[in-house]
Amino acid sequence: MAFGRNKNRRRQDAAQRNEAVKGAVRSKGPGVMKVLALTLATGLLVWGGVELRRWALQSPRFELAAVSFSGLQRASRVELLRLAALTKGQNLWALDVGALERTMLQHPWVKKVEVSRRFPNRVSVAVTEHVPEALAVLGELYVLDEEGEPFKRVTPGDGLDLPLVTGVDREGYVADPDQARQRFQAALEVARAYTKEAVAGKPERLSEVRMEGRDVTLVAASGQEVRLGEGDSEVKLQRLARVRRELGARGLAAEIIHLDNRARPGWVAVKISSPVSERNGSAKQ
């Protein structure tokens, strides 16, 4: 009898297990099917993406046909294409835009560059160049841009006719580039103010901006020195224009014009150029 009871108990346990399995399938089955379906869909998407990428990288539809440039003044498209090793037939999807921009930035005239892919088969390049405003002697002759940055050495083919900024040497620039740039910027501001006055009064072309400590001296193409000292350069340049007009009305030419009187800022002292016959003697004041 005991044997029969054990046998019945085993049958009951098996039936209970079967019911438990069936219940688990009924409750968990939809979730498991969703997971399986999602896994299958993900796999199909990955496979499709791989195949799509392979097709895009091999399709003649995306072969580079043309490159357009904007903003070029000093740099040339030939030079930039050569730097970037950008040629027709390259696949647009395979191009590394960041690498193209970095290589084009190696051109000395290029300040900023933005490369954009224009699907299906074109690339556009927007270039911002340095604007040359002056020259500086830093061991060698360098070009200063509008921010006072010496961005390239002067080469014979540059064809630049710009004022020279002196008073900042290579040692000073290497020791403190930020301070050197600030002095260059100050010199450029004075040069711009001089040019602004030149538009109205047509004075002599500026040849040099000499930075001597805090003092600024301008040298015209004729060799005339205008000693501004320190302070409000625009006001002093307006005064300079009046002095030059007065000298011109009298038929005189100045060798040195002093606008650097610290004690009496409004005063002007002029050293008149000597006639040829008197150059070996004392100059008139």
Score class of each variant (00 low, 15 high):
Gly157Asp: 12
Glu147Val: 15
Glu140Ser: 09
Val154Tyr: 03
Phe151Glu: 05
Pro132Met: 03
Glu133Arg: 07
Val137Leu: 08
Leu164His: 02
Leu135Ala: 04
Gly159Tyr: 04
Glu140Trp: 09
Tyr142Pro: 10
Glu171Asp: 13
Gly148Pro: 11
Gly172Asp: 05
Asp158Thr: 06
Gly159Arg: 01
Leu162Arg: 11
Gly148Glu: 04
Val154Cys: 07
Glu147Met: 14
Val143Pro: 14
Glu171Asn: 15
Val165Pro: 10
Arg153Val: 07
Glu140Val: 11
Glu171His: 13
Thr166Asn: 14
Glu140Thr: 14
Gly157Glu: 11
Gly172Ala: 06
Ala136Val: 05
Val143Met: 13
Pro132Arg: 02
Pro150Lys: 02
Lys152Val: 01
Gly148Ser: 01
Leu162Asp: 08
Tyr173Ile: 03
Ala136Met: 02
Asp158His: 12
Phe151Asn: 08
Val168Asn: 06
Leu162Ser: 07
Val168Trp: 01
Gly167Tyr: 00
Asp145Gly: 10
Gly139Val: 06
Asp169His: 06
Thr155Gln: 15
Ala134Ser: 13
Phe151Val: 02
Ala136Ile: 03
Glu146Tyr: 06
Leu162Thr: 09
Pro163Met: 02
Asp169Gln: 05
Glu149Thr: 15
Leu135Thr: 08
Glu147Ala: 13
Leu138Thr: 00
Gly148Phe: 03
Glu171Lys: 12
Val154Asp: 04
Asp145Ile: 01
Leu135Arg: 05
Glu133Trp: 06
Arg153Phe: 01
Tyr142Gly: 04
Glu171Met: 08
Thr166Phe: 14
Ala134Thr: 10
Arg170Met: 13
Gly159Val: 01
Gly157Trp: 15
Pro163Val: 10
Val165Arg: 12
Gly172Cys: 03
Tyr173Arg: 00
Lys152Phe: 09
Asp158Tyr: 11
Leu138Pro: 08
Val168Thr: 00
Asp158Lys: 10
Glu133Tyr: 01
Asp145Tyr: 06
Glu146Ile: 07
Leu162Val: 06
Pro156Gln: 12
Glu140Asn: 09
Gly148Val: 03
Thr155Asp: 08
Leu162His: 08
Leu160Thr: 12
Pro163Lys: 05
Ala134His: 10
Leu164Tyr: 05
Asp158Ala: 09
Asp145His: 00
Lys152Thr: 09
Glu133Ala: 09
Gly167Trp: 00
Glu171Val: 10
Asp145Leu: 01
Gly148Asn: 01
Asp169Glu: 04
Pro150His: 07
Gly148Asp: 07
